[in-house]
Design a protein around this nucleic acid. Sequence first.
DNA 1: CGCATGTTCGAACGTTTGTTCGAAAATGGA
DNA 2: TCCATTTTCGAACAAACGTTCGAACATGCG
Lengths: 197, 197
Amino acid sequence: MRPYDERFASLLGHAARVFAQQGYHSTTMRDLAAASGMSLAGMYYYVKGKEELLYLIQERCFASVLEGATQAVARSADPAERVQAFIHHHVAFFAAHMAEMKVLSHEANSLTGDLKRRVNAIKRRYVDLLEGLLQGVAPDETPVDRSAAAYGLFGMMNWMYNWYDPAGEIHPQRLADLIARIFLGGFAEARSTVHGG
Amino acid sequence: MRPYDERFASLLGHAARVFAQQGYHSTTMRDLAAASGMSLAGMYYYVKGKEELLYLIQERCFASVLEGATQAVARSADPAERVQAFIHHHVAFFAAHMAEMKVLSHEANSLTGDLKRRVNAIKRRYVDLLEGLLQGVAPDETPVDRSAAAYGLFGMMNWMYNWYDPAGEIHPQRLADLIARIFLGGFAEARSTVHGG
DNA sequence: CGCATGTTCGAACGTTTGTTCGAAAATGGA
DNA sequence: TCCATTTTCGAACAAACGTTCGAACATGCG
């Protein structure tokens, strides 16, 4: 069953690349067949249809990010360090899996029905994780502002797919440092200064 | 010629709303006909085709944002205040024109050929405007980091379409204040403190 | 080899898509 | 009223879409 798994993973990988480049809705099953080196009908042996392909890409990617972030965050007890670890992990993962993360960010509403609901369930856990961390660095902030700040941070990070070039001169770690500096410096600094002084 | 202009504007408005809700590629000309109260063929009297509809929405919206930002920024000479004015204008405009701005942000690559090139030309002017402002608040930063910071700020602001509810409890001005505080506090504060002290 | 199981694919189906066309309807000035 | 112009639309078209089906091919065990 090894060749099966390899071809399945290869199909998902090629599909993620094409979805990222052309967008989900304007990608045809024939495009995916050409990119993966399979025939049109052959893909249906591995997958129920086009939407399941998108679901599998999003679900696997999201579950992987969530697990990685949970581990990265657990390595520290300091609130600011935990947020920084979250940012570093997210940016590094994004840079290392650009296609999948772009599909996750940009095609967030391309799934329908139960598949969409299942991905959204993971998303909620991921958002909750960050909001919990923000409670640590800005406990005096109102929940509404903390939530808005969390979305702002996600925006800074997820917007990557619109401009970031992994082969360019900005190393992922440097970008993560910059984002963490902007966010922690601007959102939490005033409070931690007060608390620390 | 008044009724013509009104119906044309109405068509663009309804199209922007449907594009924002369903996405450009999964919106059919029949959807737009139903939403605008026109017949399928009737729309082609006003517009060359589906892609021109998207182009007109993006071009008009982008030109309007650019002009508004230019004016808003011109009201101050202080670098930090100019960045703050840019942020406030962008967020307020976004909240006031959610449908068009979502179409602008989310369908940035749905145009092709010359139409895409024309919208990208305006985008470049808009990005250049912000990067110029950032040079004022962080002149010692490397151009690469300043550029990345600009994209980060755009990410914070444009991500709005994924979560912001104009009818919710966060007033646009409050969101703009929060974003400006995060960005200016984190990106420029260290430098301006050094320079000021 | 013979045969069952796993895997691939050409061809086709029914539907939906953006767009076109010619005619009908409305409009407004003389 | 008549006529020319502007505006609307039903009907249809060709192309492209996701999906299905049955047959072909490969594989490996007895």
